[in-house]
């Protein structure tokens, strides 16, 4: 047997070893899907009532979303500010700087991760609050006293809070990045620069780029799995209640963009320059 035949045999063995586990997982997933589907059929009336409430009583849904927005924005802002203040304090303690270095880096990372997540959470909650805006405002002003209903005040507060949060977040992102630049003088880029991400990446050294690569691949795998689960849930939900096909298209678009961008970037980076 030559070396290629040996290799083929090894590949075959590896495939058959994993095939059994793959089939078991498929069967379990099928059973789980069937059970979820059956449970959804049993609970379809409840799901319908809930979705009908969201669709018809938008005033209540949007007012509650506005309340959640205000609570979330305050909580997230406290997390961001407290981590930054703690990092700054550790940085000012020059005597123990060597011991505190990793703690400072961790706190700065927390500020940056939480502030990035804050944008997504607040945009989503603002989107829920402003859903059916014209209809809700119209309904909100149709009160017996002639005074606007609570929704109008919540919407005004949320809109002001949205701008405050954007500036607050941006300001703490800038402070955190500048502190990181004090810690690591080789880092380049300003948060006010539209090419910040590119400049920051270019100033990373080989070990940092490797860590970014590992983190990116893990994030890619997590998003792939999340898209698969969300697609299955949306398809099952669409079988029993009218949620339109929009959610399926949105998930498919995001999933496709992620797979194609990752695949094309990998191809671009693995192809020798002459072969491109």
């Amino acid at each position: 047997m030559n070396s290629e035949e040996n290799r083929r045999e090894e590949i075959k063995k590896e495939d058959s070893k994993n095939l059994a586990a793959f089939i078991i997982v498929l069967i379990i997933a099928g059973i789980a899907g069937g059970l979820i589907g059956a449970m959804m059929m049993i609970g379809k009336d409840r799901v319908r009532i809930w979705l009908d409430t969201v669709a018809n009583d938008t005033l209540m849904f949007c007012t509650v979303s506005g309340g959640l927005f205000i609570v979330a924005s305050v909580v997230l802002s406290i997390i961001i500010a407290s981590n930054y203040v703690a990092a700054k304090k550790l940085w000012e303690d020059k005597e123990h700087l060597d011991d505190n270095w990793d703690k400072i880096e961790k706190k700065i990372s927390r500020v940056l991760v939480v502030s990035a997540a804050t944008y997504v959470i607040l945009y989503a909650l603002y989107g829920c609050t402003a859903y059916n805006l014209a209809g809700n405002i119209n309904e909100s002003f149709q009160t017996a006293s002639g005074m606007p209903g609570i929704y109008a005040y919540v919407l005004a507060a949320v809109t002001v809070q949205m701008f405050v949060c954007i500036f607050f977040n941006l300001s703490f992102q800038k402070k955190a990045v500048n502190l990181e630049k004090l810690l690591n003088p080789e880092k380049k880029g300003s948060v006010y620069d539209f090419r910040f991400a590119k400049k920051w990446y270019e100033s990373l050294d080989e070990a940092e780029r490797l860590k970014v690569g590992i983190a990116s691949y893990r994030a890619y795998s997590i998003v792939n799995r999340t898209c698969l689960v969300m697609m299955i849930v949306t398809i099952l939900l669409g079988m029993i209640v009218k949620i339109t096909v929009l959610p399926v298209f949105i998930i498919a678009t995001l999933w496709l963009i992620q797979i194609l961008s990752f695949g094309l970037e990998s191809l671009k980076n693995s192809t020798p320059t002459a072969a491109k």
């Binding site: 003088p185 990373l204 050294d205 070990a207």
Partner: peptide, 28 residues
């Protein structure tokens, strides 16, 4: 020299020097 200074001398970050010293990263 400390990790920060060594990092500056070879144009890498303090963390990279720390990772190499701990054996968590094999340099190029």
């Amino acid at each position: 020299v400390n990790q920060q200074e060594l990092g500056s001398m070879v144009h890498v970050s303090r963390q990279t020097i720390s990772l190499i010293e701990r054996g968590d990263y094999s340099p190029s």
